[in-house]
Design a protein around this nucleic acid. Structure first.
Lengths: 160, 160
DNA sequence: AATTATTTGACTATTTTTGACCAATAATAT
DNA sequence: ATATTATTGGTCAAAAATAGTCAAATAATT
């Protein structure tokens, strides 16, 4: 209960809860300094405590003005989406399977027709003509899409 | 979070918006002096925040009476995103530049707030963790988004 | 004793800041 | 006119400021 990782985890969760939008942006180096540890310790905490399973999305930026952004996902109206989110974690996804997933999300109202069209095009093999593992990349993209659907500020950003 | 580059960017955008013709002419040296930085810092800001993809055109002249002219182009003037599509074709795009492009598309009504949020997340470095060339991949994703915006069936799918 | 979790640090990647040197244009001198 | 000098802006690469990865060393748990 009192490992460094646990303390950092508690601290971050406390601060995030205090944010109106449940989003926290912080400098990794600052956090490491506050807890008197190496910066990579922060990554360990993020990986083990702020993953999909725990309902968080993490984004970041390097270089001057860099940051780590932790976004708490809304878990309130979970229509079985979390299962899908976990099922796509780190998985390869074929184009056909990806198309099916997006269409299903569209039919169930999680994605608009436009969003579906856009993403269908994005995961088509021609776009993903990456040298690397296209199926893995497709999985990463779809995983990210799913996580964003669960963001509480995502639904609220309908239109002005 | 407020880097020098961000401050200069904000300042310039504020001033340009206040111009009736959305054109700003300024001396690079003056700007650098105001922000107490080296002149080349200005070029960095222009390159990373005022490129064609972000909807700006930059011209300049050296020597006595020299200047830097920043022109904000509306999409109509810009031939319907044609230049942006060209500029992103096969090109590598940094996270900063990508953010700028998406925000511009959002501001000009080509992307909804939701679509912007989703895509911003998709191009953030932590999401785009792949073995290959991240910047190239970011460019491919954004290029695909632009092509979709230009497709008539995508434009027409705004309502649902 | 074996396995799993945590801590640490060396090495990598990305973005911003800075400075030395280059190029163009205008003004002035010859 | 031409050459020279002053006045601008441009380029590029190094340094600084962030963050990420990975695996070895420790610690905790089974």
């Amino acid at each position: 209960m009192s490992t460094l990782a646990n303390q950092i985890e508690s601290y971050l969760k406390k601060v995030i809860s205090a944010q109106p939008d449940h989003i926290l942006e912080i400098r990794r180096g600052d956090l490491a300094e506050n807890f008197m540890c190496v910066p990579s310790q922060i990554n360990y905490v993020l990986e083990t405590r702020f993953g999909v399973t725990q309902g968080y999305l993490v984004e970041s930026k390097r270089g001057g003005g860099g940051f780590v952004r932790i976004i708490k996902l809304s878990t309130v109206q979970d229509n079985g989406l979390h299962k899908v989110v976990e099922a796509t974690n780190g998985r390869r996804i074929s184009q056909t399977a990806g198309e099916g997933l997006l269409n299903r999300l569209n039919e169930e109202g999680f994605l608009t027709n436009r969003e579906n069209l856009l993403l269908q095009s994005l995961i088509s093999s021609s776009v993903l003509k990456n040298d690397g593992d296209s199926e893995l990349l497709r999985g990463q993209i779809l995983h990210s899409v799913l996580l964003n659907i669960l963001r509480s500020d995502f639904e609220n950003s309908k239109e002005e």
